[in-house]
Design a binder for these strands. Structure first.
Lengths: 273, 273
DNA sequence: GAGCGCCGAATGGTCGGACCACTCTGTCGT
DNA sequence: ACGACAGAGTGGTCCGACCATTCGGCGCTC
């Protein structure tokens, strides 16, 4: 804590946030541990429960705290994935120019990440990646056949909400999973979390829809297969090149889509300014 | 009250968050615009004002909304910098292994960013970068000059300038500014915001302090100068190489520092597990 | 008529209390 | 010994009141 402003009037809620952060930073409560009840904390810090709740809400959305109804408030594991969950908002809200910037960043990150994955991925990782690749192929081919009802919504590791949409989203989801599995196999959780934040389901769906229209899905498939081959061959350079080509292709498509659909069908809000 | 017996029991507050997000995504309210008052929104969405306030608080900490006391609640410009402000929490809270991961990500990003900057920076950018470089030299040069050996100036801290935090923080701040100016001159605001989030003043200060002890500040200076030269020469390849070397050097130092200070002076919280 | 200062409405910030929904635990009944 | 149940504890929601700040307009002064 730098300094306690002598005469500054900081909102009560924010002070509560700082205090709680200090409790964590100071080791008073560690990752996974439970803090006092809202009521106790409110008394302890001398604020009302409402304000304390807002403070907790703030830290909850930051991924630092986790509130379990009926149980208590807990400090998260403070893993990068916890703290970077908010990141996805960027990819969700972004439009036009910013979306392009996001892709530029991915163009910097993904090649390096993929190369690293080629060097580090173990057999289990490769198997998972291969499975996702096949699933992508499959769900894309039969996408006109309508969405199969019950099916198996569970994939074992899917804490995320499943969107009950048809093939496009399935393909997009598999695509997302494919890339996430790759960055995850770098062994760098921070990198994985950032990579996840830079992708978004909705954007991916848009890409796949666009590509289908343009009849370019095949190119994406080939990209994916080349990436997969490079990973299996444990060839970082090839992996880097394949990833670069892939991101570049998406970027190129987005650029064209933005230029063309400017104010057209795609809900691209024109900032005007 | 009319419940939704459909089955899904989503917390009221979260529903409010979604609704507001939808209002923004749907263009009902644009960046910079003001939305209805808390009271009106609460009535409009059928929730209490408390819950609405928590929803607003959540979106505020995400950088999507901005509340001005007495005035109203406004949508931010939705610039990447707004949405990625939360990002810094990672760099703040991270320790040990995660810090290393963060540096690995920077090792992927900064070289590419610096190369891009070499191609895109205009005269004004270069001037700013150069100024920061000089400022860094100036505030740091006097430390190394005096005691190259183990003779630490611990004993009598001479009253140094007016700097409240002394030269270390100044140097660290200038270092931070130096790199941020570089990524900013790529013209990619998203990249700049991410780069900013991956750095942290406290970490930088630690690096500089550590480097001074190890007597390696000179190496960092040389790195910076090489980067600067490459930028001025508009040589992307040289810039990429220089940035790589630089980040790698910091990473190497951190790795050594972590290995050595494991359980020692550095407050590295042991998760136990 | 122009400029300035003050007041009050509008709005976010804080508070305290009440009740609901959920979780956990210890006890009771079988 | 095991399972169902009831109670206490905790987060989630709602309500109504009041405080602090902002901003616009009214009236005063010059």
């Amino acid at each position: 804590m730098p300094h306690d402003p002598g005469g500054e009037r900081t909102p009560v809620t924010q002070r509560a946030v700082e205090r709680i952060k200090a409790m964590i930073a100071g080791g008073e409560v560690g990752p996974g541990e439970r803090l006092p009840t809202e009521r106790d904390l409110a008394v302890q810090l001398g604020v009302s429960r409402s304000s304390m709740r807002e403070a907790i809400r703030a830290l909850t959305t930051l991924g630092v705290l986790e509130a379990r109804h009926g149980a208590g408030v807990y400090v998260t594991a403070l893993r990068p994935a916890d703290l970077l969950e908010t990141f996805s908002v960027l990819a969700e809200v972004s439009q036009g120019q910013t979306l392009l910037e996001v892709l530029q960043v991915r163009r910097m990150l993904e090649p390096a990440a993929t190369a690293l994955a080629a060097a580090r991925a173990d057999a289990r990782d490769l198997e998972r990646i291969g499975a996702l690749l096949e699933r992508m192929d499959g769900s894309d081919a039969m996408d006109c056949a309508g969405a199969p009802g019950g099916a198996a919504p569970e994939g074992g590791t899917r804490p995320r909400r499943e969107s009950p949409d048809g093939g496009v989203l399935d393909t997009a989801g598999a695509d997302l999973g494919f890339h996430q599995a790759i960055v995850a196999s770098t062994g760098n959780a921070t990198l994985a979390a950032i990579g996840e934040g830079l992708s978004s389901r909705t954007f991916n769906a848009r890409v796949w829809a666009g590509h289908r229209e343009a009849g370019l899905s095949a190119a994406l498939h080939e990209d994916h297969e080349r990436i997969h081959e490079a990973l299996v061959a444990r060839d970082p350079d090839a992996a880097r090149a394949a990833a670069t080509v892939h991101v570049l292709r998406v970027e190129r498509w987005l650029r064209a889509d933005l230029a063309q659909g400017d104010g057209a069908g795609t809900r691209t809000r024109a900032p005007g300014r």
